[in-house]
């Protein structure tokens, strides 16, 4: 019994300590965040690595999610003779929830894990140490460009995901199930609010991006310099990144839509 309490206590303390280190890590990162804008090539490279290379998965997933929404929405709404509302429903669910959340989840798996592995390997091969020895600050040179790139890219990816999703919903509802084309769009434009839906969705996305970037970079930084250590760290990025996104989504939704 005592032993169990002790184990729980130890686990709790080590968690708190890790959270503290992550906080310090983020704090150390803040003053360097303007730097990537001076070294635009560093930033563009990371935007390409994390953003452009994530496009295929985001485009495909967006299209399919939208198509499913169209199908499911139609099946429910047709019973109430209001199948034209399927456009509104698709757009709202994508803008408010699915766009930011699913994008962030896919991004953690596709780019977050890669960032962790990259940083972990840079540490284990002494590249970070070598940068310091060459009087180049790794926080500015390695961490800041990646952080800024993630925060810029994730909201854009979420919007692209949403656009493709609406297209998918349109294809299914109008193209396949025969919902009226004009009603689909006019209902949607009438019911989607710029501030409530679009802006709030983007804000969510930015918050998720910050979370994912901190988790991925911090796990890479903390990874023990062995192949086992790096692989565990990558797993932790995916688990903590995804769970964190879902938990934050609940909090943000409660704050925004209540």
């Amino acid at each position: 019994m005592i032993r169990m309490l002790r184990a729980i206590g130890r686990w709790g303390l080590s968690r708190l300590r890790a959270a503290g280190r992550a906080g310090l890590f983020l704090f150390g990162l803040l003053p360097a965040l303007a730097y990537p804008f001076w070294r635009i090539r560093l930033l563009l490279k990371q935007v390409y690595n994390t953003g452009t290379l994530s496009l295929p998965i985001i485009l495909t997933a967006g299209l399919f999610v939208g198509m499913v929404l169209g199908l499911q929405g139609y099946n429910v709404l047709v019973d109430y003779n209001s199948e034209e509302a399927v456009g509104t429903m698709t757009a709202l669910s994508l803008l408010r929830e699915l766009g930011p959340v699913v994008t962030a989840l896919l991004f953690v798996g596709r780019a977050g894990s890669a960032l962790t592995a990259e940083i972990g390997l840079m540490r284990s091969t002494e590249q970070l140490s070598a940068l310091e020895m060459m009087a180049v600050d790794p926080v500015r040179f390695i961490f800041a460009p990646r952080f800024v790139a993630v925060v810029l890219v994730v909201p854009l990816l979420a919007l692209i995901f949403t656009a493709l999703g609406i297209l998918g919903g349109y294809l299914v509802a109008v193209g396949w199930l025969g919902v009226d084309d004009g009603a689909f769009w006019s209902q949607m434009t009438a019911h989607v609010d710029w501030q409530d839906d679009v802006v709030n969705g983007v804000i969510k996305s930015v918050v998720f991006a910050v979370w994912v970037a901190v988790v991925a970079l911090f796990q890479g930084e903390e990874a023990p310099p062995t192949s086992e250590g790096v692989s565990y760290a990558t797993t932790r990025t995916v688990v903590q990144g995804s769970l964190g996104v879902l938990a934050l989504d609940f909090v943000l939704t409660a704050l925004m839509f209540n």
Binding site: M122, E126, Q127, A130, L131, E132, M134, A135
Partner: peptide, 30 residues
């Protein structure tokens, strides 16, 4: 540190740059 060079055990070359750019790196930075 600019007046110090250090040779790491593994070499610690930046893996995303080729040989030329690795050697040019400190010159371009400083």
């Amino acid at each position: 540190r600019r007046r110090m060079g250090m040779l790491f055990q593994s070499g610690a070359l930046l893996t995303d740059l080729n040989v030329f750019d690795n050697v040019a790196f400190p010159l371009r930075e400083h």
